[in-house]
Amino acid sequence: TTYYDVLGVKPNATQEELKKAYRKLALKYHPDKNPNEGEKFKQISQAYEVLSDAKKRELYDKGGE
């Protein structure tokens, strides 16, 4: 599973699309609303952290993490 899959976006997604997808999923899986989905929330946050940063995203796209 790639970070793009976690957020449900395509690899060519814009920053705005990433932000929108992250917010939607973060609300859905937030531990306050969904106590059993803490791990999913962490995955979503990690994916967004990497993909929202241009340098980290470039490194990730080249095969790094």
Rank of each mutant, 00 (worst) to 15 (best):
G8P: 00
L59V: 12
T1I: 12
E49I: 10
K10H: 11
I44P: 00
E58N: 06
Q46W: 08
L27N: 13
K40R: 11
I44M: 04
T1W: 14
Q43A: 13
A21Y: 02
A54H: 10
F41A: 03
K55Y: 11
D32K: 11
K40A: 10
V50P: 00
K40H: 12
K33H: 14
N12L: 06
E37L: 10
Y22W: 08
A26Y: 14
K24W: 09
A47P: 00
D53Q: 03
N36Y: 11
K42Q: 13
K20S: 14
T1V: 13
Y22P: 00
L59C: 11
K55T: 11
K62Y: 07
Y48F: 11
K19C: 12
E49L: 09
G63M: 15
Y3G: 01
N36Q: 13
E65L: 15
K24H: 11
K19L: 13
Q46P: 00
A13M: 03
D53K: 03
P35Q: 09
P11E: 07
S45Y: 12
E17G: 05
E16P: 06
A54F: 08
K56M: 12
A13V: 10
E17I: 05
S45N: 11
E39P: 05
V6H: 06
T14D: 06
Y60Q: 02
R23Y: 15
K19T: 15
L51V: 04
H30T: 06
Y29L: 05
T1E: 13
Q15A: 13
Y48G: 01
G8Y: 04
P11V: 12
L18G: 01
D32W: 09
D53R: 02
L7W: 01
K62I: 08
G64A: 14
A47M: 04
T2S: 15
L59M: 10
E39Y: 06
K62Q: 11
A13E: 02
K40G: 04
E49W: 09
D53P: 01
D53V: 03
E65H: 14
N36C: 12
G38R: 13
L18W: 01
K19W: 10
A21C: 05
E58G: 05
P31H: 06
A54E: 13
Y29P: 01
L27C: 11
S52R: 10
K20D: 15
G63H: 14
E17K: 04
A47I: 06
K42I: 09
K55W: 10
V50R: 03
T2P: 04
N12Y: 10
K62E: 07
P31G: 07
V50K: 02
V6D: 05
T2Y: 11
K56Q: 12
A21L: 01
K24N: 13
P31V: 06
P11F: 08
E39V: 11
A21T: 04
D32E: 10
G63I: 11
K28T: 08
N12Q: 08
A47R: 00
A21Q: 05
L27A: 15
L51C: 01
Y22V: 02
L59F: 08
K55A: 09
R57E: 03
Q46I: 11
D53T: 03
Y29W: 06
